[in-house]
Nucleic acid binder design. Structure first.
Lengths: 206, 206
DNA sequence: TAGCCAATGTGGTCGATGTCAACATCGCAC
DNA sequence: GTGCGATGTTGACATCGACCACATTGGCTA
């Protein structure tokens, strides 16, 4: 058992992020404490200062990793299904799946503590990557006629609203006892129906 | 200058809630401090304890008022438009409108700090009222044939996801420079198209 | 190879916060 | 009127974020 901890940790920054996420998963974002994180990792209370200017910076780092993970998970659907329509559905499912698999991450990513993305440019970039995949799939769908024509930005915003709202509501425990899987299917079905090709049946724009 | 403050405030509880909301609007949820709220109202730092067991209780009270306001604002559409379809659209718009008009309230309502609604039954009840209006309108629409048949719970969840996601994204500044009004219209349009009567064009349920 | 220096971790401190407990003051029921 | 519960005050304590001076390390250079 000789090995006593060396004076330098080696990879403290990542260790702090990991410990922070673990803490958030167990006791919520508000329980995240710089000192507690430092304790978990086995360094003194001031050590994190060398890697994160303040508490907000640590939270932002956790959120950034969450966005990267979401972007990767969502981007993976690009090679999955054959038709753009199927890919669009798979993309929606992937978004919600990631949220349910990593609820703590999701909560941090859209926490008010990092809402001001102008102060965390890397956050905005990571979020933009997710949105980019969505716009890309919608544009593809439009080229193949499986998605109704229209401003891709507006359509992607509508689609994003739907899957994001679904994810947030499910995480917040608004499933009301129903099967989450069924609710996700319902949402993605309606997403598909709402975006699919058809002539508008009534007046648009209030 | 005669009037010195009486020993008892008279309506401290509501005054604290109001001050708390104001503070949140100005500096964010994380800046909400029991002592600062007490200072604003002009009482000593321990006075709030008589009305709120802890900081979380105050936050929950603010959230509860937000839910009540949203429920009222949304319920108002019941008497507005003629057809159920129009009412459904108006309902979605009303939801997002309230969110944009009271962003701080919305953020608190869905803040992780009150996510555990089991510890705040009155919160769950207020949220349920909002959802109830939605289910009611969808059931009405189905009776008149302007909404596709299907489990009303699933349909309302899909609709709720859409408007809630839209509201959250807009509040979080994800409008990307586009007109919020146009984005809301796009979302509600797709909501209407997704729920409207038609035969499913492809397979459903993965 | 010797030494030097920037990066990284330690220990101490300060003001602010949430929470508790003991005390002061008020208003309403009797 | 009087007594008691509700409400507000004062004081205290542990913890937190942030800052500082100092200690230790490893890598770079001369």
């Amino acid at each position: 058992m000789g090995k006593k901890r060396p004076y330098h940790h080696g990879n403290l920054r990542q260790a702090l992020i990991d410990a922070a996420l673990e803490l958030i998963e167990e006791r919520g974002v508000s329980a995240l404490t710089l000192r507690e994180v430092a304790r978990q990792v086995g360094v003194t209370h001031a050590a994190p200062q060398r890697h994160f200017a303040d508490r907000a910076a640590l939270v932002a780092a956790v959120a950034e990793q969450g966005f990267r993970g979401l972007a990767a998970h969502v981007a993976a659907v690009r090679g999955s299904a054959r038709t753009p329509a199927q890919r669009l559905r798979a993309l929606g499912v992937a978004y919600v799946e990631y949220a349910l698999a990593h609820p703590a991450h999701l909560r941090v990513m859209f926490s008010p503590e990092v809402a001001d993305k102008s102060r965390h440019p890397e956050l905005a970039a990571a979020a933009q990557a997710v949105h980019g995949t969505l716009v890309e799939q919608i544009a593809n769908g439009q080229r193949q006629g499986s998605v109704a024509p229209g401003d891709p930005d507006e359509l992607s915003f509508a689609a994003w609203s739907m899957v994001h709202g679904c994810a947030v509501l499910l995480i917040d425990g608004q499933a009301m006892g129903r099967s989450k899987r069924a609710l996700i299917d319902a949402v993605v079905d309606r997403l598909y129906l709402g975006l699919g090709p058809r002539e508008p049946s009534g007046k648009r724009r209030s």
